[in-house]
Amino acid sequence: MNIVLIDYGAGNTKSVQFACNRLGYDPIVSSRAEIIKAADKVIFPGVGHASNAMSRLQTSGLDLLIPTLKQPVLGICLGMQLLCNATEEGATKGLGIFDVQVKRFSDEVKVPQMGWNKISNLKTNLFMGLRNNAYMYLVHSYYAELCDDTIAQTHYGVTYSSALKKNNFYGVQFHPEKSSLEGEHVLRNFLNL
């Protein structure tokens, strides 16, 4: 299987790459349109600041390419947030795949949320075979609200979308590559779609 990790200088591609290796896959890390277009599965990671990440996407033209992809695409963490309409982080406009806003956690909770939290109300094959309330590793200060595209939810001060799906696009707020065996289970499910 031809798996491509999108490399745009704002993602910890190494960890995702290693997690795919542990599952027996050998992904390609690339920023080139023709390679990404030819992939069977595309993974879109992201860490850091939303507006920096978005301007990097724009510089490389990936902001136009990603929404046209037809194969299964998995956005991870900031990657998921960039697939939403817009995020409060740096008032950044997103790629608009998921019809939802990304907001900052209120100061009633510690920000960033850092650590393991439960995901529940699991929907779609992405979570096939996974227990409800599985623990996943999350590190983030901004969250996507609940919406029609929500396929998993988590509570931290508010109940929010910890996973989203629309057509061939999936997004997870948690880090499957860092969430022990259950995270690897989700990643394997995605690669098996």
Binding site: K14, S15, F18, R22, Y137, H175, K178
Partner: peptide
Amino acid sequence: VAEQVNIP
């Protein structure tokens, strides 16, 4: 460690 360990 990054290759072999699946937690942060």
